[in-house]
Design a protein around this nucleic acid. Structure first.
Lengths: 228, 228
DNA sequence: GTCTATATCACGATAGAC
DNA sequence: GTCTATCGTGATATAGAC
């Protein structure tokens, strides 16, 4: 990230701070613009204006439009991976799924523009993420899928297709970030507050757990009008 | 759609056929390009090349880039509305939800690019669809929501928030069109076939019905490892 | 290290030849 | 009705002044 210090003899501490601050401004602004218009639809000019810097500075700091875009994608993948810790057959399905849904909703809420940036990349056929999808992410899904299947064999949940289940969790949680404009239009709100988010998390958790017949710590779950 | 016939004296049937065919080519090509790159990211040049026509002809037939885009959005909204027939409290929740999920999956499968076009529009803040979201679509959702609530009061399903339920159905069904690149990357397939689609429909239907505690024709649903 | 000025090219749209 | 030629604008990127 900063290997070119050898070229400059003096420490230039003040400039390093300036650079760090400007880079942060650019990254924030770029995530905003790219998420709204996609890679091609976004212009460096618009990003520069949003960051309050001259257009050339954006290119000076980031090298090129593409390098900036790739850097943002990588940052989002990193956030994403941070909440995907390992699971094993010994874990409790209800706990794992509940925690995962909650974290996904929280991440979407914390970084809606990153989520939309990723969504736009996938919508466009994932030209910059082909490798990631076919490699790292695919392996991650296969690992979890195997655990879900073992849970089903042990009678801890229904034998549903684990990949479709993962897609269900992804789509339903990200929806509130990616389709925010639609959600707000239909609900008539200006923004979703923390209470809404709590309610949505509880709703999605409940549907997924009950829908997959997840037993809590070996007990059969309550069913019927008294449930929840 | 064709009110300017008064200007031409002769019938010009052949040209009408040419026009109809060219317009169709343009609409198909434009849906492809707009869905990949969004409104700003798409160029009339690229649409023209995909349609096999000179750039000027695209603008001649469609008037402007924006008019073409709006026309495509309207076409998608029309397809969308076609499967949203009225429901009442007297209907069976299981039947209504099952049919709706099936139709949504089928529509996404028939028109994946239309679905992605819509998604890109929403991702970008829905600049051309604000009115639709706050008006027509919002009313549609409120109508269904009221019926869901009445079903819950009658004990036909759990008292879940009906709006979150509708969002769940939308997001989980459209996921396979909108995030197709991700789905194919992770599953390692070239395309989802009809068997996959059937399986996904069955999975989503099962999770939603069971998750919401929908009783089939008044009976309590089966639960536990023998279910399904 | 930062920013102005500019090179080069593609954009949407249109005027006018056929 | 169709297509070529072109206009004015805004794109990414860079060279060079400070």
């Amino acid at each position: 990230m900063s290997q070119d210090n050898a070229a400059t003899k003096t420490p230039v501490r003040r400039n390093e701070a300036t650079r760090a601050r400007n880079e942060q401004m650019i990254l924030t602004a770029a995530e905003h613009i790219f998420s709204r218009h996609g890679y091609r639809g976004a212009s460096v000019q618009a990003i520069a204006e949003a960051a309050g810097l001259p257009k050339s500075n954006v290119l000076y700091y980031m090298g090129s439009k593409q390098a900036l875009y790739v850097r943002l994608l990588a940052r989002m993948m990193k956030r994403w991976n941070a909440l995907l810790d390992d699971i094993s057959v010994e874990d409790d399905p209800a706990e794992v799924l509940t925690a995962y849904i909650r974290r996904k909703v929280e991440l979407s809420r914390r970084h809606p523009e990153g989520s939309r940036l990723f969504a736009a990349e996938i919508l466009g056929g994932a030209p910059f993420l082909q490798e990631y999808l076919h490699g790292e992410l695919r392996e991650w899904v296969e690992d979890r899928a195997r655990v879900f299947e073992q849970w089903a064999e042990r009678g801890l949940m229904d034998p549903v297709n684990p990949v479709w289940l993962i897609f269900l969790i992804w789509s339903s949680t990200q929806h509130y970030a990616d389709f925010e404009a639609q959600v707000l239009g239909i609900t008539g709100k200006d923004a979703l507050d923390e209470d809404d988010t709590e309610e949505i998390t509880a709703f999605l958790t409940r549907i997924v757990l009950k829908g997959c017949g997840v037993r809590e710590k070996g007990r059969a779950i309550a069913v019927g009008r008294t449930a929840e």
